[in-house]
Design a protein around this nucleic acid. Structure first.
Lengths: 219, 219
DNA sequence: GCCTCTGGTGGCACTCAATGTCAATGTGCG
DNA sequence: CGCACATTGACATTGAGTGCCACCAGAGGC
């Protein structure tokens, strides 16, 4: 029940912060205003959030864990591009569905992308996600993340897709469909994700005459 | 000659800051210590650098501009993977050669990668580079960056390679050769950078004549 | 019912980053 | 020499973030 209390205060704080920040802009709002609106003390705010930036970015916090979990849940035989596409799709869906309406999430994303300090923290978090995804990918494929460049690169490509889709979705005011955008993005990067790292990749691509006889990828 | 003075002070400040930060850690050093070591006032510091983070990150500032310039200088007929590889290679070379010895740059990179606040700013800057590279790529290929996903994705992939190489270089204590790592990384992502979008690019990769064998898929 | 232990909270004081303002200083030029 | 211009240093101020301590619940033992 203390647990419920904590969750309640956290929600109250997040609510007040997002409302104020989205309407007045990041720099124009002080922590004092937020805590006044939420009805708690300044000191309590920093017990729930490590920084003023944190209260916004944590709104998208478990996206990384969600993507990794989704990736881990995909069947091992699935091609990397398909597994990563589902993982990224799950992350974006979790983002878009956040808190009742997607319109709310859209405002938060726009706020992040337009505020340098928030963008910095967001990108830092993405870097963390990349390491997680790379680790999971290495595990899936039986690779050594410390030797092979593929896991980090593949995770980086997947997150580039994530970021690109998120930006496009934000710029389009939520008009464009994230799922469709994700599919398009992964269609573009799939050739690199699925190409066999050990051998004749050039031949693979070059051999894409009519029907590419894609050699057995990593299983 | 006021110009010379400015450059002198800037160098003095950067020198003192890098020395202190690298040895004591980011949080353990205050701006007052830096300015005391540099022999200028606290206020002057913030006339040269927008923030305490800036003095470190700006050390790698023109990497982005350099990469874009290198990309713009590559022959237009060159495959995207090759052009981007040279651009990223130029950026990494500029980074490694920074200030006399590469050992100096290595310490700065390690400091950035190990300090969350610096990493955040560095990633933010990379996001800016991505937009620049995407813009230049779109111009090169005659694409609309607002419509086609390729420019941003390709730029993202290239910067993933950049980041991966930088991390590996840092982790290996400068042992591994950045150029070799870059080549390996771009071999992995090239299939996506050079693949389809325009039918004849595949043929280009194959190195054969101009026979668009695959129907151009429009994104 | 009383005591105690515990977890969350509020208030206070403090450090430090970052910005605005203004006087002082130095440099170039007529 | 005196005037214009840029740079600097010395406050003063705001606001983020942290440590510390007193306060106030509820849970459980006596």
């Amino acid at each position: 029940m203390a647990e419920r209390k904590r969750q309640l205060v956290s929600n109250e704080l997040t609510e007040a912060a997002l409302q104020l920040l989205a309407s007045k802009g990041y720099d124009a709002v002080t922590v004092d205003e937020i805590v006044a609106a939420a009805g708690v003390s300044r000191r309590t705010f920093f017990r729930y959030f490590a920084s003023k930036e944190d209260v916004v970015v944590q709104f998208l916090a478990d996206l990384g864990a969600g993507m990794r979990a989704e990736l881990a849940a995909r069947p091992g035989a699935e091609r990397p591009s398909a597994a990563l596409r589902h993982a990224v799709g799950a992350g974006l869906a979790a983002c878009a569905d956040r808190s009742d309406h997607a319109e709310r999430a859209l405002r938060v994303v726009r706020l992040i992308l337009r505020t340098p300090a928030l963008l910095a923290r967001f990108m830092e978090r993405q870097a963390g996600w990349r390491e997680e995804l790379a680790e999971e990918l290495a595990r899936r494929l039986g690779l050594d993340a410390g030797t092979d460049l593929y896991p980090r690169l593949a995770a980086g490509m997947a997150l580039s897709a994530f970021d690109t889709v998120l930006r496009r979705w934000s710029e389009s005011e939520g008009t464009e469909d994230p799922t469709a955008l994700t599919d398009r993005a992964f269609t573009l990067i799939a050739p690199a994700l699925d190409a066999d790292r050990r051998a004749d990749r050039i031949v693979d691509v070059a051999g894409a005459g009519a029907r590419p006889s894609r050699p057995g990828r990593r299983g």
